[in-house]
Structure formats: C-alpha cells, structure tokens
Design a protein around this nucleic acid. Structure first.
Lengths: 143, 143
DNA sequence: GTCCAATGGTTGGTGCACTAACTATTGGTA
DNA sequence: TACCAATAGTTAGTGCACCAACCATTGGAC
C-alpha cells in the first residue's frame, strides 16, 4: 500500500469516476431496448414521479445544467416520450409532460433496478450504505 | 420516505452520478490554474506514478477507452506536459513520458488533495470508508 | 404606463466517454 | 518465407456536461 498522497489508487475522486462509469455501463444494455441513455433514464424517472416539470425544476432535481437538458429533452420529444409546451401561465417556462408512450414505458422500467442489483450481486444492505454515504458526500460538496 | 422503487432519490446510480459530478466540480477551480481538466489530472497522476506508459497501459489503469485517451493525450502534449513517441522496441506502441514542465507540475498538484478534503469538510475516516465502499462497487461491476 | 433587472430557456464552443471502423506493426504458423 | 490473426493506436459519430452569451417574458419600481 502506497503512502504517496498523489497515488491514483487512493484518490476518492478517481474511485467515484470509475464507479459511476462502471455502474452506468451496467444500465446501458438494459436501457438500450427502450431507446434510452442513462441521463435520459434519470429524466424519465423524474417525470414519472413529478410531471409536469419545467426545465428549471428538472435541472434542480437532477442537478444538471439547463443547457445540458435542453437538447436532451428535444431528443426525448423526438422519440415520442414527452411533450414540450410553453406554460400558459408563464410563457418563459416550459411545461414538460409525458406522452402515452412515455407513461407506458414505466412498466418496462420497473424491471431495471432489480436487474442492476442482481447484476452487481452486492447485498442490498451494503448498497443502502453506499447510497447513504454518497448522499453525505453530495451534501458536503453542496455546502 | 417514498417506497417507489423508481423514485429518483433512492437510485444508487443517481447518487453516484451526482456525487461524481459534484466532487469533480470541486477540483475544477483548483485545476484551472494548472490548465488541467479532471480527466487530464488523473492522467498526470498515473504518469507521475508510472511513467513511461503506453496508451494501452494507461487505459487499463484509468479504466478508460483508448479512443478517449488519444485526443486527451494530444492536448496534454500540446500544453507541453508530456511527449508521445513511438516505442523503439514495438513501433505499434506509444511511449508516453513527462516533460520537465510536466514533472515540475507535481509540486503544485500536491496541494490539491488536502484542499479538496478541506473543502469537503468530511472526517478523513469517513472518506476512507467511502473509498472502500466504491472500490467494492467497482469490483462488483467488473465481475 | 414605462423602464429594467430578474427569470426561463436556447445556442455555440470545448472537452469527455463510448462505439465501431480503420491503419500499421508484430509474431506465430503453415 | 509468406501469410494472417492479434495487438496498438487513431478517427468519426453520437451524446453528455459545463460555461458564457444570448433572447424573450415577466413583474416590480418609479
């Protein structure tokens, strides 16, 4: 075990990056049949839970730049999973709503989380701990 | 607390993505004066530890695609931190070595990890636990 | 009522990440 | 020796992520 403070294998940021990419890679083949990328999947999760949403609200929920979401939402509209319409009450704002197909997709999506957990083969208990630890990291970074 | 298995706030993948982006965001202003992005910083860490390296070896160490590294390495060569030369023994392979400036940069880099830990304000003990947990996730995903 | 600063979203530029197709070198085997 | 499969790296295409500049709408302040 190296005591070099710059050693790759003891950087938390490196472990975070690799873990995030590794886990997203597990989702890829599962999402591909639905025509979704992982960020698009997260948008769909947010919409299934909270639709209708504005771009601003969505960017807060996902902690993503509106500039990132804008083209992503257009792609989801192009596939036919959602609609982007101006909010009647405030023409600056978009009301993002699900289409029938978008709502229907939820049934397929319900198979994803258990498939990922199964593929990881880690005890649920430990995954909960990881989630809690990450939540503390996110809170610390946000301060 | 929602019991919806598709709820955003209980997805480990979501926490992972947000945490990774949040932590990288902490590095951004620290790396900017050195002219480095976070992935470039990881490449420099690998080189300070193991130079000379081939693209293949680097892609194994960082778990990144050679296709991602290729243009990234050219950018680092353009700034003058490294050299890309064909390996004399095997002309297919690149020997990536540090320039004098690249080696000198290490001194500045040594301030980064403590600055990040300080900025996060989390006990070192907990960061170690996070690191260990992430390492298990990475191993599980790789299996 | 008329400015004007704040707000919501879009666009363009840079760089990362993955995939697939491609080129060049190497080294084993017929 | 002449072939050919494996290996190393590059390139092109798509999409994500951040930033800064931009446009339109809104809602005060005067």
């Amino acid at each position: 075990m190296s005591d070099d403070p710059l050693a790759l294998e003891q950087q938390v940021c490196f472990a975070l990056s690799v873990a995030a990419r590794s886990v997203v890679a597990i989702y890829r083949p599962l999402l591909e049949p639905m025509g979704l990328t992982h960020p698009q999947y997260l948008v769909m999760l947010a919409l299934w839970q909270h639709a209708p949403l504005s771009v601003r609200r969505l960017s807060e929920l996902l902690q993503l730049d509106p500039g990132t979401l804008s083209p992503l939402l257009k792609r989801l509209e192009a596939i036919g999973y959602l609609r982007r319409e101006r909010d009647q009450a405030d023409e600056r704002s978009l009301a993002i709503t699900l289409t029938e197909r978008g709502r229907a997709l939820r049934v397929d999506a319900e198979r994803i989380p258990p498939a990922v957990v199964e593929r990881l083969g880690m005890p649920l208990e430990e995954l909960k701990n990881v989630h809690a630890a990450l939540t503390r990291v996110i809170a610390a970074a946000a301060r």
